[in-house]
Design a protein around this nucleic acid. Structure first.
Lengths: 331, 331
DNA sequence: CTGTTAGCGCTTTCAG
DNA sequence: CTGAAAGCGCTAACAG
């Protein structure tokens, strides 16, 4: 492996000089710079970023934590957004696994892991409002941190999220505009800001529009098709049925399938409205609220960079958009 | 940040001793070890892995390269497999971006990036048999490397893949067993080992079974629904039509949709057989060949670890399996 | 403009 | 069993 010493020796200069040209510092004669550059090119030398990290305390690496098994459609696209802006800025992304922690002889949590790996900042995604104390270390540290969809703030911590309240409001207004007065909602898992916000938007709008609010029409469960199945099984047994169902995409799709399997037709018998605009929705013609996933990732990265550079710490709320397809009809 | 020096000072021992206990080396009196351990715990000290990397030349980090926009269903699951075994072994995963290369003043390619970041090994996924010279640096280096679905080998390079030839053979034999004698194939993009292997299996089996081979029934294109649409548009215009279509899942789904939109029914008018078993296939009741994606990732990681430890370099070929659902019928 | 020197936090001989 | 010292590859004062 070629090191800075090799280059210095070959170019007959000191390594300080080589360092200066590598870093594009001033104070090097143009001739010397060119000469060193040539040697560097000839040997295809690239400075070790680990040595660099050690001496500068800056690694050009940002960490990502995700809870186990969150490796889904949604976050993959967020990740893509993250990658694109961070990559542009010369950062690589360290995907922090946490398998080893449990058996460890030390209390090794987010903060410690970040310090240990020397990341310049960290993005946390897929975490819910459960076990919030897990994050204490991070929040009280000075490690620049951005949460996706979890509104935690601290001196060096901020978050990005879609405007879920507004999205839910848009959904309900749309349904109401179509003539629906009885709208059910299947919420995501309790404890997630995202799910709570959407429910808030739902309740608020139902109220504002003077629609019928019926607690029996509110369901809750995991972000999966099963949740949709379960809710539909209850709904179809009701005497006073809702005419429309509002749920996150995956759940909504489960609901559509359940409805069909029970001989109902969408949107003739029930209108179904999603939230997220996952790719799968396309295959069901699902009317839904689009979240800009790439944008979420991009915003998270930019915010993180801003925090690192102490330029801004303000949370970012991204707008959402209604995508009209074929699962809702006017009644 | 607490360093080894702090611990040494506080524990009134030398940092060499602290190092020994951290690394669980012998030659430390049990009493001393316990004392040091207590101080470590009290200060929640964790050694900097970057300093460690610098001095040991081992980073417990493995790199992953993916071409841009390969962030799809398939590879996400492979990634999950990778993460699970590597995490278990104490490795973190460095997702190597390559955005900066182009404008760089240096020829900075896979190999250089790996050396620069000091990864212990690298997994390459989603690369096709195009521009193979890109990999020369890596192949000629001693950086442990595992390719997923690309059969490149070198002194420290190997690969993992599913048994695509056999999978295609299973598919064709199944279709033939159902009475089909005219089977079309829509291949994936040329240049990918995966696509080539599947085509090989197709041809071989068509031949062995004495089925009709008609070059007009062989199509090729990107791994997308459009490819399926395009092929179907040609197929339905033919006088001598195939009765079954064999294609990778995404393409097969495009074909099913195109068929339906043109008033044909699956499997009544055409049988459609996929390959990959992507999750989306479930929503179409697609009969397909399952690739063990998690297994692919796990195998890649294990192989990489073996290469790193110089234990084994043999490529791994994973078996596939036929998943019978509703898109094929006997005729 | 250039080079010397002292670290960054850790591991690893090698004496004691 | 313990510690002093050198060194991993680089950066950053500071002299010259």
């Amino acid at each position: 492996m070629t090191t800075i010493n090799d280059i210095a020796r070959i170019a007959r200069v000191s390594k300080a000089t080589v360092s200066k040209v590598i870093n594009n510092y001033p104070g090097v004669k143009e001739e010397t710079r060119r000469h060193v550059l040539n040697v560097i090119k000839e040997y295809n030398y690239w400075p070790s970023s680990v040595a660099r990290s050690l001496s500068t305390n800056k690694s050009f690496t940002i960490g990502i934590f995700e809870p186990v098994r969150i490796n889904n459609f949604f976050f993959r696209e967020v990740f893509e957004g993250i990658e694109s802006v961070l990559g542009e800025e010369g950062y690589d992304i360290l995907y922090l696994t946490n398998k080893l922690w449990e058996n460890s002889w030390l209390k090794f949590s987010f903060k410690e892991k970040c310090i240990n790996r020397g990341v310049d900042g960290v993005i946390m995604m897929g975490f819910g409002r459960v076990n919030l104390s897990e994050f204490d270390g991070l929040l009280n540290s000075n490690i620049p941190t951005v949460f996706v969809d979890l509104d935690l703030v601290g001196s060096n911590t901020s978050y990005v999220t879609s405007n879920n309240v507004e999205g839910a409001e848009m959904a309900i207004r749309y349904l109401a505009g179509l003539g629906h007065k009885k709208i059910a909602m299947i919420k995501g898992p309790a404890g997630f800001k995202l799910a709570n916000d959407r429910f808030t938007g739902y309740q608020k709008t139902i109220h504002e529009l003077n629609l019928e609010y019926n607690p029996d029409w509110v369901f809750s469960g995991e972000y999966s098709m099963e949740t949709g199945y379960d809710a539909v099984n209850k709904i179809i047994k009701m005497r006073n049925r809702p005419t429309a169902i509002f749920a996150e995409d995956m759940i909504a799709i489960g609901a559509i399938r359940a409805l069909r399997e029970n001989g109902f037709s969408v949107p003739e018998d029930f209108s179904v409205m999603g939230f997220d605009n996952i790719e799968l929705g396309l295959h069901y013609g699902l009317t839904t609220i689009n979240q800009d996933r790439n944008g979420l990732g991009e915003a998270a990265s930019r915010l993180l960079l801003d925090i690192i550079n102490k330029k801004s710490f303000s949370p970012v709320i991204l707008p959402v958009e209604l995508i009209e397809r074929d699962t809702c009809r006017s009644i």
